[in-house]
Simulated scan of single mutants.
Amino acid sequence: MEVIEQSEYVTIGELVRLTGVRYSTLKFYTEEGMLPFEQAEENLTRRYRREESIEMIYKIRKMREEKMTIPEIKGKIKG
């Protein structure tokens, strides 16, 4: 876990371990364009910038707790 916590990039599975957010939720955020990633050419693995992704996940979570809809959240993130 310590290695993951110090890595610049992490996988979606590692984000699950770091944040406690379900895999399906993170996959949804990714597919909706709310959680940016880079894709490694050699094996097509999605890599997320650890610090930025964790920060974004917590922002999204907070907005959801405030009863904001996904379109509202996407508007805030993009705008």
Results as ranks from 00 to 15, higher is better:
63 M>A: 13
68 M>H: 03
67 K>H: 13
46 R>Q: 07
73 I>V: 12
47 R>D: 09
47 R>V: 15
70 I>M: 07
66 E>T: 02
39 Q>P: 08
56 M>P: 04
56 M>C: 13
65 E>G: 15
43 N>C: 13
53 S>I: 13
76 K>N: 06
39 Q>S: 06
52 E>I: 10
51 E>S: 08
39 Q>D: 02
72 E>Y: 02
56 M>N: 14
76 K>L: 12
70 I>T: 06
39 Q>E: 15
49 R>F: 15
58 Y>P: 00
38 E>D: 14
55 E>W: 02
56 M>K: 14
51 E>H: 01
38 E>L: 08
73 I>N: 04
41 E>D: 09
58 Y>F: 06
76 K>P: 03
40 A>I: 15
52 E>V: 13
40 A>Q: 13
59 K>W: 04
48 Y>C: 12
45 T>Q: 12
57 I>T: 09
61 R>K: 15
57 I>L: 11
63 M>D: 10
38 E>Y: 07
47 R>W: 15
48 Y>H: 09
43 N>W: 08
46 R>V: 05
67 K>I: 06
66 E>G: 04
49 R>W: 09
49 R>T: 02
58 Y>E: 01
66 E>W: 01
53 S>R: 02
75 G>C: 04
57 I>A: 07
45 T>M: 07
46 R>G: 10
42 E>D: 11
48 Y>S: 09
44 L>E: 10
43 N>L: 11
70 I>G: 01
42 E>V: 10
64 R>F: 03
57 I>F: 07
68 M>R: 05
60 I>K: 00
53 S>H: 04
52 E>R: 14
55 E>F: 13
73 I>H: 04
56 M>I: 10
63 M>E: 06
63 M>S: 07
64 R>H: 07
47 R>P: 15
65 E>L: 11
50 R>S: 09
55 E>K: 11
40 A>S: 12
50 R>T: 03
58 Y>I: 02
76 K>E: 06
69 T>Q: 01
42 E>N: 14
69 T>K: 04
68 M>Y: 00
62 K>C: 09
41 E>H: 01
66 E>Q: 10
75 G>V: 06
57 I>R: 07
49 R>N: 08
68 M>P: 02
59 K>P: 06
54 I>D: 01
46 R>M: 14
60 I>A: 07
55 E>T: 03
76 K>S: 04
61 R>L: 14
59 K>Q: 09
64 R>C: 07
43 N>F: 03
65 E>C: 12
75 G>I: 04
64 R>N: 05
50 R>L: 03
41 E>K: 12
54 I>R: 05
68 M>F: 04
55 E>N: 06
60 I>R: 00
69 T>R: 01
54 I>N: 03
62 K>G: 12
42 E>R: 12
62 K>H: 08
53 S>E: 03
52 E>N: 15
60 I>E: 00
61 R>I: 10
63 M>W: 08
68 M>C: 09
40 A>M: 12
60 I>Q: 01
44 L>R: 12
50 R>H: 05
71 P>R: 07
70 I>D: 01
53 S>Q: 02
44 L>Q: 11
